[in-house]
Design a protein around this nucleic acid. Structure first.
Length: 447
RNA sequence: UCCUCGGUAGCUCAAUUGGCAGAGCGACCGGCUGUUAACCGGUUGGUUCCUGGUUCGAGUCCAGGCCGAGGAGCCA
C-alpha cells in the first residue's frame, strides 16, 4: 500500500502515490468523471476518478457511492487550483478505492441548509461537517495553548472538586444532587476557593475543568455545562494580574493562528483582526467605562438602544454595555475597579475607596464581551470574616477559607477564563453552542 | 421568570380574503470529462405540533396547551 498520509499534509506529496483513509463527504457525478470530497479527520481532499482510467465496475461503484461511506483511497497527488478542500489546491487522481462500508440508509445531514434544532439533534453527525470540524479543532488547539502557557510559566495544575458542599460564591443557581447521608451536594461552579488554598502550597496554580450553572439563561453566550480555566497566584496584585492575563490571552490567540490557519480561513475568519492581539491591552476603570457609555448613549438616535444602555453607578454591566464598550477597541479591553456591591464577597477593596473592588474583567473585541473575570482577593482575615457576615454566608462552611488568611496571608489574585466564549470569539462565530462537542443548554441533554 | 418570533414532506421553506397540500433539496432512475451545496429530465414523498371551538368548509380564525429560537435578567 502506498504511503498513508493525512489530508492536511497533502502538499508535501505532490507527484507521489499515496493512500487516504476516510469518509465520503460529498460526491459529484459528472458523466465520465466523479469527484469525491474525502475527509479523513485531518482535512478535506478532493479525489477524482476518470472513467477511462479505472476498472468499469469500480467506476460504477464510485458513481453511486453514498455520502459518508468509509473508504481507503489510493492515487496520485497533483496540484490543481480548482480543487476544493481544507487545505485546498491539491487533489488525488484515483487509482484504487476499497469501500470499507457503503452506507445503506439515507444520511440525515445533507449539504443543504438545516435548522438549529435538527442539527443539534444530530450533533453526533453534525461534528463531521467542515465548519464544526474546524471549530472543534480550534477548541482543542486553544486548550492546548492554555496548558502550554501555564506550564511554561510555572503554574501547577491542581484539580479541584466537582462535587462541592455549598455555593462557592453564593450567587448563581447550582445543580443539586443527593450525596449519600451528607445531604445535598452541588456541581462545581468554580474551583477558585480551592485554588486559593493551593497557592499557599504551590505558589502559582490552576484548575481546568467543567463548570455547571443551573441559571435559566437562553442566549447565544450561555451553556449550563462549560469549561473554565482558573489560574491563581500568590504574591500578585491587580496590576500584575492584568499583565499575566494579557500575556496569556495573546499566547492563546497567536498559537491558534500558527496551528489552525486553515481552520480559521475555512470559517471565513479575518486573520488580521487576530494578528493584532498582542500586549499591551487597553485598561479603563469602571468609572471611565460609565463615561464612555454615557457618551455612546448621547450620540445614538435609537431609543431602544438608549434604554438598553441605561446604567447607574453601582450596577454591573449587562450584555449590551459590554458589547458597546468592546466596539471602541480593536483589542481585548480590561475594565477594572467595579463597585464592591456588584461583585463577589472575597474581592480586595480599592485602597482609600471601599465602595470599589480590585476586580477586573477582560472584554473581547468585536462585541464578544466578557471572557475573563478576576480580582485581587481579600488577604486580611478580619475583613474577610466581616464580608462573609455581610453576605449572610455560613461562617462555619468557610472556616478553612478564613484559615488561609491566618497562616501566612499574602496579596494574591486570580481569574477565570471561559473556554467556550474564547473559542466563539477566536472563531468569529455567532453562537457558543458550536464550540463544545456536545452542548448542554437549558432544554437539551441529548445526544 | 419576562418580552418577541416560530412549528406544513426526511431537510429548508411557500400556500393571496377561510375554498383541491405546493416548490427546492435529499433518495431512486437516466444524461453530462472540472464539479465546488454542480447542473438538466423523470420518479418518490403529508397525523399541516396537540386538544377543543367557530364555519357549508380551517394550514389559515378563536381558546388552552406542548415544543423550539432570539433577547432581557444572571453569569464565564
Amino acid at each position: 500500500m502506498p504511503t498513508l498520509i493525512q489530508a492536511r499534509d497533502i502538499a508535501d506529496y505532490e507527484g507521489q502515490e499515496i493512500t487516504l483513509q476516510g469518509w465520503v463527504y460529498n460526491r459529484t457525478h459528472k458523466g465520465k468523471l466523479v469527484f469525491l470530497l474525502i475527509r479523513d479527520g485531518y482535512g478535506f481532499v478532493q479525489c477524482v476518478a476518470f472513467q477511462g482510467e479505472l476498472d468499469a465496475e469500480l467506476f460504477e461503484t464510485l458513481a453511486h457511492i453514498p455520502q459518508e461511506s468509509s473508504v481507503i483511497v489510493t492515487g496520485m497527488v497533483r496540484a490543481d487550483s480548482r480543487a476544493p478542500g481544507i487545505p485546498g489546491g491539491y487533489e488525488v487522481g484515483i487509482m484504487g478505492v476499497e469501500v470499507v462500508q457503503a452506507v445503506g440508509d439515507e444520511y440525515p445531514i445533507s449539504l443543504k441548509e438545516h435548522g438549529v434544532d435538527f442539527l443539534l439533534d444530530h450533533r453526533h453527525l453534525w461534528i463531521r461537517v467542515p465548519s464544526q470540524w474546524a471549530i472543534l479543532r480550534i477548541r482543542t488547539t486553544i486548550i492546548s495553548a492554555i496548558r502550554e502557557w501555564l506550564e511554561q510559566n510555572g503554574f501547577t495544575l491542581l484539580d479541584t472538586p466537582i462535587l462541592t458542599p455549598a455555593a462557592c460564591e453564593g450567587t448563581t443557581t447550582l445543580f443539586e444532587t443527593e450525596y449519600f447521608d451528607e445531604g445535598p451536594a452541588y456541581l462545581a461552579q468554580s474551583g477558585q476557593l480551592y485554588n486559593e488554598a493551593n497557592i499557599f502550597a504551590f505558589g502559582k496554580v490552576y484548575c481546568f475543568g467543567p463548570t455547571f450553572r443551573a441559571e435559566k439563561s437562553k442566549t447565544r453566550r450561555h451553556l449550563t455545562e462549560f469549561w473554565m480555566v482558573e489560574p491563581e497566584m500568590a504574591f500578585c496584585d491587580l496590576e500584575q494580574l492584568m499583565e499575566v492575563e494579557e500575556q496569556f490571552i495573546s499566547h492563546i490567540v497567536q498559537r491558534t493562528l500558527r496551528d489552525c490557519r486553515n481552520e480559521l480561513l475555512s470559517l471565513g475568519r479575518d486573520l488580521s483582526v487576530l494578528e493584532r492581539i498582542v500586549p499591551p491591552f487597553p485598561r479603563i476603570s469602571y468609572d471611565e467605562a460609565l463615561e464612555k457609555l454615557a457618551q455612546i448613549r448621547a450620540e445614538t438616535d435609537d431609543a431602544e438602544a438608549r434604554k438598553l444602555l441605561e446604567i447607574e453607578w453601582g450596577d454591573d454591566f449587562g450584555s449590551p454595555h459590554e458589547t458597546a464598550l468592546t466596539k471602541l477597541f480593536d483589542k481585548p479591553v480590561f475594565v477594572y475597579g467595579y463597585p464592591t456591591g456588584a461583585k463577589a464577597f472575597y474581592m480586595e477593596p480599592w485602597p482609600g475607596r471601599p465602595d470599589v473592588s480590585k476586580s477586573v474583567d477582560l472584554l473581547a473585541p468585536e462585541g464578544y464581551g466578557e471572557i475573563t473575570g478576576g480580582s485581587e482577593r481579600i488577604s486580611d482575615p478580619d475583613l474577610l470574616l466581616k464580608r462573609i457576615h455581610e453576605h449572610n454566608l455560613p461562617e462555619e462552611a468557610f472556616r478553612w477559607y478564613i484559615d488561609l488568611r491566618r497562616y501566612g496571608s499574602v496579596p494574591h489574585s486570580g481569574f477565570g477564563l471561559g473556554v467556550e466564549r474564547t473559542v466563539t470569539w477566536i472563531c468569529g462565530i455567532e453562537h457558543i453552542r458550536e464550540t463544545i462537542p456536545y452542548p448542554r443548554t437549558i432544554n437539551r441533554v441529548y445526544p
